[in-house]
C-alpha cells in the first residue's frame, strides 16, 4: 500500500477545541445552531425535550470536532447552548 504524506509539524500547531453544552429543556428546536456550526458538529436529537422539541446533540462520530468558535452560543435566541474550552 502506498502511504500518504503526513504534515510534519502538526504537533506544534494548536487547534482550539471546545465542547458544546446544551440546556435541552430551554431549546425550542429552531435549529439555528445546527445551521450555523461551521464544522457541522451538531444535529437534532431523536428524542424530545419537555416542551416537545428535538434539541441539538453531538453524535459520537463528531465528538472532539468542535473548534470553539462559539457561534452556536451567539445565534441561540434562548441561551440554550454554550461552549466550554477544552484546551
Amino acid at each position: 500500500m502506498i502511504k500518504k504524506r503526513m504534515l510534519l509539524n502538526l504537533d506544534k500547531l494548536k487547534i482550539p477545541k471546545g465542547k458544546p453544552i446544551v440546556f435541552a429543556e430551554r431549546c425550542k428546536g429552531c435549529g439555528l445552531c445546527i445551521e450555523y456550526c461551521p464544522k457541522q458538529v451538531l444535529s437534532f436529537s431523536d428524542d424530545y425535550n419537555e416542551k416537545g422539541y428535538h434539541y441539538p446533540v453531538i453524535p459520537p462520530e463528531k465528538e472532539g470536532e468542535c473548534i470553539r468558535c462559539g457561534f452556536c452560543r451567539q445565534v441561540c435566541p434562548d441561551f440554550a447552548i454554550y461552549v466550554e474550552d477544552e484546551n
Binding site: L8, N9, L10, K14, P16, R68, C69
Partner: peptide
C-alpha cells in the same frame, strides 16, 4: 493560534502545516 483550520504550508512545499 486561535484559528481552527489547518492547511499545508506552500512555503514548506506542503510538508508542514499552517
Amino acid at each position: 493560534e486561535a484559528c481552527p483550520v489547518i492547511v499545508p504550508n506552500e512555503f514548506d512545499q506542503g510538508l508542514g502545516a499552517r
